[in-house]
Amino acid sequence: MSTVLLQTSGLGKAYGNFHAVNGVDLCVRAGTIHTVIGPNGAGKTTLFHCLTGERRPTSGKILFDGQDITHRPAHKRVSIGMARSFQITSLFQELSVRENLRLAAQGRDGARALTFWRPTEARRQHLEIADQILERLNMTARANTPAGDLSHGLQRVLEVGMALCGKPKLLLLDEPTSGMGIDDIPLMTSLIAELGKEHTVMLIEHNMSIVMSISDTITVMSRGQILVEGPPAVVRQDERVRSAYLGEEG
C-alpha cells in the first residue's frame, strides 16, 4: 500500500455540547483521490475546515507528511504542501486571471513577499508557474481577463487552479462542482481526475456521479463520525450508507 500523507486520530470539534466532528480517524494515502461524503450536517465541512486550519479542533491530532499540524494556522500549511479551494468561489475578482495565479504562486514563499523594495518581476518563477497553470487549465486565452468576468464554470476551474499554484502535495477541494451548470461539470470531473494522477486529492462533493467515477476511496460521514470507508464499489453496496445517505436522496 502507498504511504499515508494525511492522518487524523480522534479528531473532534465541539461547539459547546454539540460535537460537529467526533473522534474521526481519517487516513489519506499518497497518490489517491479521497472523497468525503455524507448527508447535510454530517460534519464534512467542519472536518475540512479543521484540515485547512480555518477552525481549531478541540480534540485529537492531525498529522501531515509526518508533522503534527493540529494547531498550525492556515497560511503556514501552504509552505509544507497543502492547498485548498473554496466551496464559494473565492478569487481576487478585479485582478486578471494571470495575476490571480501569480499571487497564488508567490504565496507559497509566504513572508518573502514582504520585500517591498523589489520589483515584482524580480521573482520570475512565480509568473512561470502562473503560465504553466494557465496552460494546464486551458485558460491561456483568458490570461488578462479580470477573474470576476469569467463564467461561473471557469471561475470554479480557476478556483482549483489557484490551489495548484502552490505546488501542493495535497489538494483539498471543497465541493469543486458547487453551483456549476450541468454542462460544465464534465470539465471539472476530467480536471480532478487529471490532477489525481500527480497529486493527492481530498475532496468534499455532493455530486454522486463524480464521486463514484473518480474516487479511489470514499469516506461516508454521518453525525460527526465515520460511517463507512472503502472503494466506490463497496460503499455503493453498503446498506448503512443507503439508509443514511443515498436513501435520503431518494
Binding site: 473565492s90 508567490q106 504565496g107 514582504l114 520585500t115
Partner: peptide
C-alpha cells in the same frame, strides 16, 4: 509594484483567499 504591493492588493480583494494561498 513589488511583491509586497501586489499582495496588499490581493488582501484588499479577498483576505481569506490571500491567507489560503499562504500569506500571513
Amino acid at each position: 509594484h513589488s511583491p509586497f504591493g501586489s499582495t496588499l492588493v490581493a488582501i484588499r480583494e479577498n483576505e481569506n483567499r490571500a491567507s489560503a494561498v499562504g500569506y500571513d
